[in-house]
Design a protein around this nucleic acid. Structure first.
Lengths: 246, 246
DNA sequence: CCCCAGTCTGTGATTTCCCTGAGAAACGCA
DNA sequence: TGCGTTTCTCAGGGAAATCACAGACTGGGG
């Protein structure tokens, strides 16, 4: 089931109408804090654990609809934690967090069962999007919630990563895609450059704030080129997207 | 829930009808005093603290609905304070105060959890507006309170920053927008130039008082142009806004 | 009716913010 | 390893916003 929150955003709910539950497992406090804050903002109920032991325990009584699991925990090997979690919750989807240079093929084997993974450092948009996908496909939330965002004649498919304006397909790079997704998930709302940086760029990004301007400029060339513009600047405030006719 | 106060203003209330509670944390006494006065004027209940230690203690027993937190405190790093506050009050929204040039070396995720920030020197209208937004979205206040101000056929949306008169969209600059918001939040009431300067311009503004006249003039061109005027001068007293027909 | 404090607004200087081209560095894939 | 793609920095140009200044205007008291 989907419903419209007070923020005007569409959020996932379980079939019985209660909020989705997510368990976050990471040994770095800053990561669990960051993820908890962001996922709570999605309207979900969050618990966190700092090691494998705690993860299994919390999973038993919290019974989450999804788990975010760092593969590098101090007390147990990631695979062991996964096994014990599966004993408690056989069907729960898991989003793995792994270091960039970690053994990719080991993870690839794990995700065959419908799970997914993101590499550190990640962007919050990426984590949220993948979690939404996992929860949607697991059936914990209503399936009618679909994966296509629509603003005016612009469409973005979160599953296939296809973007089109007025039926015409548009190729975007990964960063452009995430930026556009964030804009389209908040239509008609002014988003500041700080908000965009916090959601779309990875949490350790230390660069110039004008990357946002740069990528807005790239998006305009591809989305608005020669058409009625949909991406608007609010000088001193930020950017927003809205249907061209309005 | 919203209700109409004796002053004729619409104010936020908690679902049980009690006033919203806000904790203000800053080590400069002049700032906490300034903010406390302005926020009390909104009908909110205010406590203040001068360091991280005091902030955590006060939060524990006061249980505020929102926190205004200076990132530069004498005894603790801003993030440490935040962490301890979160342990006491996991879902409380935080409005960060930061120096203008400190935004560059910002901490990732400041706004990602739905929190927000303003840079010093700020204007009181800006702080109040952002706090209202945070409280509204956090669900601490009744959800029916929405983000659109209406006076006659003039509307102002605080989320999308859109202004329209008689359905016709009007573009305003940031300062014009804040001035109009202040007027519209106090309809039919005379506001002196001093009051306007104190609320809409930042607290360290040292310029000529006639900027107010100038910006009233800008607003009239955009809002009243060729229409029945809504912005009126009370010679020797100040300005007020009211519906055109009356 | 005149005067003057108070108000309005045109002009332009300054500052701030935004856009975008060019190129360097990192990445990913064959 | 090599090549095309993507990401990002840097810097210049330009547009918009802000504000000071000064002269024009106005309304109300004398």
């Amino acid at each position: 089931m989907t419903t419209t929150s007070p923020r005007g955003r569409t959020e996932l709910l379980r079939p019985d109408g209660s909020p989705v539950r997510v368990l976050v497992v990471d040994d770095e406090l800053s990561i669990t804090e960051l993820l908890s804050m962001a996922l709570r903002y999605e309207g979900w109920q969050i618990r966190s654990a700092g090691d494998g032991q705690g993860a299994v325990q919390t999973a038993r009584e919290f019974r989450p609809d999804a788990v975010v699991l760092d593969m590098m925990l101090p007390d147990m090997d990631g695979l062991t934690v996964l096994g014990r979690l599966r004993r408690e919750l056989p069907d729960v989807p898991v989003l793995f967090l792994t270091a960039k240079d970690a053994v990719e093929d080991r993870i690839a084997g794990l995700t065959a069962g419908g799970d997914d993974y993101v590499t550190k450092p990640f962007s919050l948009e990426e984590v949220v999007a993948r979690l939404r996908g996992l929860i949607r496909r697991s059936g914990a939330a209503d399936r009618r919630s679909d994966s296509v965002l629509v603003v005016g004649d612009l469409t973005l498919d979160e599953d296939s990563h296809e973007v089109a304006r007025a039926g015409e397909s548009i190729h975007l790079t990964a960063t452009e895609f995430e930026l556009l997704r964030f804009l389209m998930r908040n239509p008609r709302r002014v988003l500041s450059k700080a908000q965009i940086l916090d959601r779309v760029w990875s949490y350790d990004f230390g660069g110039q704030a004008n990357v946002v301007e740069l990528y807005i400029s790239y998006l305009r060339r591809k989305i608005d080129a020669g058409r009625e513009p949909m991406i608007h600047t609010r000088r001193g405030a930020g950017y927003l997207i809205k249907p061209a006719v309005s």
